[in-house]
């Protein structure tokens, strides 16, 4: 089975600037997080995948179709939710979503029926006949989500879907994305700089920085490749406890009330010994779970060190 997205030595230049630098990857169907800081090349990659701009060199394929040649066939099977506001304010929610369905190729009757269904899914059932200009930011985001789903595409690309939302709205949007990610036969690319969003929704991640691929793979596998660490929380003076750990040859990092240290054979016994010696009480001891953010930062750090050396 061909991969959902595939790039081979993909490069895109804008005059002197190389926005994408020789990215090669093959991603299977599923929920894929595309993360990286601003200027990482995420948006340029999306533009190439949508067939809107050609690569300077290399190739990109979506659904085993060449993005440079088969842009229309690709966009027939892709729903795109842009980051920025892009709605037609004078239209009603239902009219806009149905209209976008028709521009995607749905017959008029089907487009309207699906627009009703998809607006119900996004929680805009009651407000669908109101003008978009009267919608709140959260409602606008939901209309943007609805227009991306109206033609029921096998692949949806969401660009910063939680941007500008309050905490409740963000949770609601992530909930919708989680439901969409769980649908069989449907894939998504979630482009964001909010790494927590990716952790909640995606099972695979593509990390980019300065136009280059930092890492790509299953989230669980990438997390497992991090350092094997344990986290200890103690009742008492953590600095005293840390000194006792250092005396035993360990390298603790004190982070507020927690102490993090690299796991080694017999380290647990030494931790309890150090606690006894420093007069603190161990409240919990657990393996450190790396967040995507930590992973991303450690990869950035490693890349920077590699560049220096």
């Amino acid at each position: 089975m061909p991969p959902l997205l595939e790039t081979v030595e993909l490069t895109r230049r804008f005059d002197e600037v190389e926005a994408i630098r020789g990215i090669s990857m093959a991603l299977p169907a599923g929920a894929i997080g595309l993360i990286g800081p601003n200027g990482a090349g995420k948006t340029t990659l999306l533009r190439i995948l949508l067939g809107l701009i050609p690569p300077s060199s290399g190739s990109a394929r979506v659904f085993d179709k060449d993005c440079e040649v088969d842009g229309i066939q690709i966009r027939e099977r892709v729903g795109y939710m842009p980051e920025h506001d892009c709605l037609l304010p004078e239209m009603s929610g239902i009219g806009f979503v149905a209209y976008m369905g028709r521009v995607s190729g749905l017959p008029k009757e089907v487009a309207f029926r699906r627009a009703h269904e998809v607006l119900q899914f996004t929680g805009l059932r009651e407000e669908r006949y109101r003008k978009i200009s009267e919608y709140s930011v959260g409602m606008r985001q939901r209309v943007k989500l609805a227009q991306a789903l109206v033609h029921d595409p096998p692949l949806c690309i969401f660009d910063e879907p939680t941007a500008g939302l309050d905490p409740a709205g963000r949770e609601g949007m992530l909930g919708l994305l989680q439901i969409l990610a769980s649908r069989p036969g449907r894939s998504m690319v979630l482009s964001t700089h909010l790494l927590g969003d990716v952790e909640k929704v995606c099972d695979r991640v593509v990390m980019m920085n300065a136009g280059q691929l930092l890492a790509e793979g299953r989230l669980s596998d990438l997390k497992a490749t991090g350092r094997d660490e344990v986290v200890v929380r103690v009742k008492g003076d953590p600095l005293l406890f840390a000194s006792a750990l250092r005396a035993k040859g360990l390298s603790p990092e004190v982070q507020r009330s927690e102490i993090r240290l690299v796991r080694s054979p017999g380290s647990e016994i030494q931790i309890f010994a150090a606690a006894r010696e420093s007069g603190v009480q161990v409240r919990y001891l657990r393996p450190a779970v790396h967040t995507v953010e930590e992973l991303f930062l450690s990869l950035l750090e490693a890349r920077a060190k590699g560049a220096v050396s």
């Binding site: 028709r102 521009v103 190729g105 749905l106 017959p107 089907v110 269904e117 789903l149």
Partner: peptide
């Protein structure tokens, strides 16, 4: 409760390009 959209019509074959820009023209 919310659930994934369940479309009451099966996915139809998409109309050709003239129909798509025809929708824009009409609008």
């Amino acid at each position: 409760s919310i659930h994934a959209p369940e479309y009451s019509l099966p996915p139809p074959a998409l109309r050709p390009r003239p129909d798509r820009w025809g929708a824009i023209l009409e609008s």
